[in-house]
Nucleic acid binder design. Structure first.
Length: 487
RNA sequence: GGCCCCAUCGUCUAGUCAGGCCCAGGACAUCACUCUUUCAAGGUGGAGACGGGGGUUCAAAUCCCCCUGGGGCCA
């Protein structure tokens, strides 16, 4: 039999990492078992559901390449279906009308709480006579439909947790249809899962307490009960359920920060599941091959951004350069210094990114890392300048290097290195004595990739010009006195 | 408050189902050293955990019970 799984988000908020991970596990399991992975939008709560969130959720899934089979099911288009099934339960006396007002119910609960009894609906409306119900209905009174919870206990075998049992007496006669005729979560969920032919329900373990209610509904309808697997939650650093307080909530924000979708997918897949052994970086194909819902952990895990960053940099190192370029361009175009004409020389961009990519943890780092390969007027790092321009002899060395560089005919890394080292030797100074100031001259910074490689890329003319410029601007520089802020 | 779930380094986890191979392995982070023109990356090494108490057993991270702690749902 082909299994069928689904991811069923409510468009009442953005798609956050917790939701994505649930989607990932459903997706992986479906692919592993050669089944189907479906999508359902639970938009029955008209007040809190927003169209924009649907797009946000869909875009997030698409970005992560979590693609779904078949058409998306929208609950808002199935309201008639839910009503039909509610009436069926009503007719079979497995559900009943409740005319209690919110105030009445609150009053009831208050008393129960005072008496330290379980807060549960009194079933008051269940004992109403046929005539009374008829009368109340004809008066067009506000009403809900409640499910009549039978006696006994409800147990199920959770694929992750094992057997879980609830006593039915702890479950109140829950509402299945609200007064506005819309279905409640548990009711719509069961009907949809049944209509969609869902065989396995994989969701967060915040739904464990919903499961017995749903099972009771399956039984009332005489439907086959699907398998359930309840995943542990992803918690914020404060060990509380993920929420807006924890910063980047929407997965799209990870995209905007320059995370690679495959890195986030890998990271999230391994948050709560392990293929066993010491695997960290694992391809999607291998995940599908090795995935088993039974290998999921039972305990909640905390989202560790540090490890995500590390994993992203690993993916960044391995990814095809051309793809990195394409993705980087999106970030570069947001920079004010970036000019459209730079994109004509893709070969140069490629070389520059190749040289700097391993220093990037996210794509967003790229523009900063390559800025000085494009613009010539940058400021000089104050701290570095104070340290490396303390000795006026530095200018002597730079002058010397400048004139030696001018003589170079084949401008390459090796030749440049030779020249720089020779000048330092002639001056009877350590090579670093000139290398550091040179770096400041060429990049304005104290750190970066190999100086000689970077000089090769920047080109002879521009390198010489930059050296000329720093000599001119810093001439007469006195450490600690000269105001470097102006550079 | 009621019910349910969970418990291995700071974090993610392997090992738990089929007890001995585990005085607990890996990864991130951290520290030291190394490489090096700098930073990062890389390499080497260090520190770091079975929440507590009872059982069962020749033997428990692993099985059972209790406590504690954390989380979730309902209100």
């Amino acid at each position: 039999m082909q299994i069928r799984l689904r991811f069923a988000p409510a468009p009442t908020g953005v798609l956050h990492v917790g939701g994505v991970r649930t989607a990932i596990y459903n997706f992986l399991y479906a692919r592993k078992m050669k089944g189907k992975f479906l999508l359902r939008i639970e938009d029955t709560d008209v007040e809190r559901s927003q169209k924009e969130f649907i797009d946000v959720i869909l875009n997030g899934l698409k970005w992560l390449k979590i693609d779904w089979d078949e058409e998306i099911i929208f609950q808002s288009k199935r309201l008639d279906v839910y009503r039909k099934y509610a009436i069926k339960l009503l007719e079979e006396k497995k559900a009943y009308y409740c005319f209690c007002s919110e105030e009445e119910l609150e009053e009831e609960r208050k008393i129960l709480r005072l008496e330290k009894k379980p807060v549960k609906y009194s079933r008051k409306c269940y004992s109403k006579s046929e005539e009374e119900i008829k009368r109340l209905l004809s008066e067009n009174r506000e009403k809900t439909v409640r499910f009549l919870v039978p006696d006994g206990e409800t147990k199920f075998l959770d694929l992750i947790h094992g057997e879980i049992t609830f006593k039915n007496e702890e479950i109140e006669d829950f509402i299945i249809l609200r007064s506005d005729g819309s279905p409640t979560y548990n009711f719509a969920c069961v009907i949809d899962d049944r209509d969609m032919g869902i065989t396995h329900v994989i969701r967060g373990d915040d739904h464990i307490s919903n499961t017995p209610k749903q099972i009771l509904l399956y039984k009332a309808f005489g439907w086959e009960i699907p398998e359930f697997a309840h995943l542990p939650m992803i918690l914020g650093p404060d060990r509380k359920k993920l929420s807006k307080r924890h910063g980047a909530t929407s997965v799209i924000e990870y995209k905007e920060e320059g995370f690679l979708p495959e890195a986030l997918f890998n990271f999230l897949a391994l948050l709560g599941w392990s293929p066993g052994g010491d695997v960290e970086i694992i391809s999607r194909e291998d995940m599908i091959e090795k995935f088993d819902i039974k290998d999921c952990r039972k305990s909640a895990s905390i989202f560790d951004r540090q490890k995500l960053l590390w994993m992203n940099s690993e993916y960044l190192k391995r990814k095809d350069l051309n793809e990195i370029i394409d993705l980087s361009l999106e970030f570069l175009r947001k920079e004010k210094w970036w000019k459209k004409e730079y994109e004509k020389d893709l070969e140069y961009l490629k070389k520059v990114v190749e040289l700097t990519r391993e220093r990037a943890k996210v794509l967003k780092d790229i523009p900063y890392l390559i800025e000085y390969f494009y613009i010539d007027d940058f400021g000089y790092d104050v701290e570095a300048t104070e340290r490396y321009f303390a000795d006026p002899k530095v200018f002597e060395g730079l002058e010397e290097i400048k004139s030696e560089l001018e003589k170079i005919e084949t401008w390459d890394e090796k030749k440049i290195e030779e020249v720089v080292r020779k000048v330092a030797d002639n001056l009877k100074e350590k090579h670093a004595f000139l290398i550091h100031p040179l770096r400041i001259a060429l990049t304005g910074r104290k750190v970066g990739p190999s100086l000689f490689k970077l000089m090769e890329l920047i080109g002879k003319e521009r390198c010489i010009e930059r050296i000329r410029k720093i000599i001119k601007e810093l001439w007469g520089y006195i450490p600690g006195k000269t105001d470097l802020k102006k550079f």
